[in-house]
Computed example of a mutant assay.
Amino acid sequence: MKKLFVLFCLTSILISCKKEKTTENNDDTGTSRAHSEWNDFGLKGNVKSTLEYTTEEKKDGGNTSSVRKFENQFSPDIALKFDNKGKLINKISYKENGNVAEDIVYDGKDKMISKRNFTTATEYVETKYTWEGDKNTIIARRFNGSRLLDKEVFQYNNGRLVEHYKYDGNEKQANRTSFSYDDNNRVSEESYFRNKPTMQTRLSIEYDDNGNKTSEIYYDKNFKVISKTNSVYNSYNQMLTSQTFTDNGSLDVELSRTYDDKKRLITKESFEVYDNSKNKEEFEYDQNDNTTVWKVYKNGKLVSETVYKYDFKNNLIYQIVTDGKGNEIYNKQIEYTYDDNNNWIGKKTTVNNIVFYTSRKIEYY
Score class of each variant (00 low, 15 high):
Tyr124Gln: 03
Val125Met: 07
Lys128Asp: 09
Thr130Ala: 15
Glu132Lys: 15
Gly133Trp: 04
Lys135Trp: 07
Lys135Val: 03
Asn136Phe: 01
Asn136Gly: 03
Thr137Leu: 13
Ile138Glu: 10
Ala140Pro: 00
Arg142Ser: 12
Arg142Val: 02
Asn144Phe: 11
Asn144Asp: 14
Gly145Val: 10
Ser146Gly: 03
Arg147Cys: 04
Arg147Ile: 12
Leu148Asp: 01
Leu148His: 03
Leu149Ile: 14
Asp150Ile: 02
Asp150Glu: 12
Asp150Arg: 07
Lys151Thr: 09
Lys151Val: 04
Lys151Asn: 12
Gln155Tyr: 08
Gln155Glu: 15
Asn157Val: 06
Asn158Pro: 02
Asn158Met: 04
Asn158Phe: 03
Asn158Ile: 04
Gly159Val: 06
Arg160Asn: 12
Leu161Cys: 06
Val162Arg: 05
Val162Asp: 01
Glu163Asn: 13
Tyr167Pro: 06
Tyr167Met: 12
Asp168Asn: 15
Asn170Trp: 00
Glu171Phe: 05
Glu171Lys: 09
Gln173Glu: 15
Ala174Lys: 11
Arg176Gly: 02
Ser178Thr: 14
Ser180Cys: 01
Ser180Gly: 04
Asp182Gly: 09
Asp182Ser: 11
Asn184Val: 04
Arg186Gly: 08
Arg186Gln: 14
Arg186Trp: 01
Val187Leu: 11
Glu189Pro: 02
Glu189Trp: 00
Glu190Lys: 15
Glu190Met: 13
Phe193Asp: 06
Phe193His: 07
Asn195His: 12
Asn195Phe: 08
Lys196Ile: 00
Lys196Gly: 00
Pro197Phe: 06
Thr198Ala: 12
Leu203Ala: 06
Ser204Thr: 06
Ile205Ser: 02
Ile205Val: 13
Tyr207Gln: 13
Asp208Gly: 08
Asn210Leu: 11
Gly211Met: 09
Lys213Asp: 02
Thr214Ile: 15
Ser215Tyr: 04
Glu216Met: 11
Tyr218His: 08
Tyr218Gln: 10
Tyr219Asn: 02
Asn222Gln: 12
Val225Tyr: 05
Thr229Ile: 04
Ser231Thr: 07
Asn234Tyr: 05
Asn234Trp: 04
Ser235Gly: 08
Asn237Phe: 00
Gln238Gly: 01
Gln238Ala: 06
Met239Cys: 05
Leu240Arg: 06
Ser242Thr: 05
Gln243Ser: 15
Thr244Leu: 05
Phe245Trp: 05
Asn248Arg: 11
Asn248Leu: 10
Gly249Thr: 06
Ser250Tyr: 08
Asp252Tyr: 13
Glu254Lys: 13
Glu254Phe: 10
Leu255Glu: 07
Arg257Gly: 00
